[in-house]
Write a protein that binds this DNA or RNA. Structure first.
Lengths: 216, 216
DNA sequence: ACATATTTTTAGTTTTGTCTAAAAATTAAT
DNA sequence: ATTAATTTTTAGACAAAACTAAAAATATGT
């Protein structure tokens, strides 16, 4: 399994999550910043290896073994992210890039020991669940802040967009996972919300609200 | 800088250490388990980039910038080895393989933070010195056990051979870095030694003795 | 339904790092 | 010193993963 093949599988897994499972060539190309023709080539190779189901002009979906590989990668990626934040004091907007490299290190023992060092975390720094050795993970109940009603409250448990720009925005506005958030008001005109976060009152746009998850 | 290029530079650094600095094509090929013709190609490329001095049919030596790259890699490799032993409880014979992968991770911040987490160690688990950010390291005074005289004593500070087989041998015979060792007797016939290690008496062959360093 | 637009695939290149086989240079031996 | 052995380099090929440009299939709009 090469780095490149692994990157494809992880991308296809993520793209399949928010869809019916079938992923288009263009979608993969976009996500990996590559050309559709390159995707076609790679997708054929992965299908050969039994990691993908592929029908020409239709798209691909992960086979069971493909999904297993993807879940192992995601496990590694997210464990490394926890390590970087907890042990090396990286901020949550800096970890993705480095974890993307670390996830390709091949050593089962390494990842199991790392898991133990971190005391078997269930969620990464962005609130995403970490699969266990068998690829199982808790699918936590959560809902988008933008879809909640005035008066409701909850704990911030995740972000939908985990780009560095968004995460830095949250830092600047002192919004963090674990914060207690209550919706005080919704502006009809633009959908912006007034929130009570850990005692402070703050106003955020609809765009921001649609990228924050609260528990439910 | 690709993984492969980095591997060549590190290999050339190590081969240059125990020699006059000039390294032969075959020596590199052997160390990297590749063919001499491949080495010639790569060596040309690295010379193009100003990392090596290369004269056809003569061999190569690192330029200053080549040596800097090599020292950075060695720094990363050895820091990761310390991490694996200290934090993840790997044994010293298991770390090399994994560190060989980890040393290629590109993130200056990562390595500085790791250095801090480990409290700026000066030596790796095999007693080899860890270069600092500027590539400087202490060249510790040490001598081979095989070259010491009966009656002399010292602390075990390093191994010359750091292959897994040798390290496991030392484990089995309870010989570890930091141990106090005194030479009790030398057998003239085969050069084997009787040692007093931390109170225990033990006999080792010349081969073993010529791969153990004591301080001096 | 038909023409047009979009998506996907094919065909043919490129780059990187490797290889084999053969040629050239260097080193060793008698 | 000339031949033989070894080392190193060249030349040509290959696999992986990407690309461009053009062709084929699918989807869309009126």
């Amino acid at each position: 399994m090469t780095h490149s093949e692994e990157n494809y599988l992880r991308a296809i897994y993520h793209l399949g999550r928010d869809g019916d499972g079938y992923v288009s060539t263009n979608a993969i190309a976009d996500r990996l910043a590559t050309k559709p023709s390159s995707v076609t080539d790679m997708v054929k190779k992965l299908a050969e290896k039994g990691l993908l189901d592929y029908v020409r002009y239709q798209g691909v979906s992960l086979t069971e073994s493909g999904e297993n590989v993807a879940l192992t990668l995601i496990r590694k990626h997210r464990l490394w992210e926890v390590f970087l934040v907890e042990k090396l004091h990286f901020s949550w907007d800096e970890v993705h890039e480095v974890a993307e490299q670390l996830e390709h290190i091949k050593s089962e023992k390494l990842i199991d020991k790392l898991d133990a060092l971190l005391q078997y975390p269930k969620y990464d720094p962005h609130g995403d669940p970490i699969p266990d050795k068998d690829g199982k993970f808790e699918r936590r109940e959560k809902k988008l802040l933008s879809e909640m009603n005035v008066g409701e409250a909850g704990i911030c448990v995740g972000v939908k967009d985990s780009s560095a720009t968004f995460l830095k925005f949250l830092d600047r506005h002192q919004i963090a996972l674990g914060n207690n958030i209550k919706i005080m008001e919704r502006e009809e005109y633009d959908g912006s919300l007034t929130l009570l976060i850990e005692g402070r009152e703050i106003s955020i746009s609809h765009q921001i609200a649609s990228n924050l998850y609260l528990n439910s």
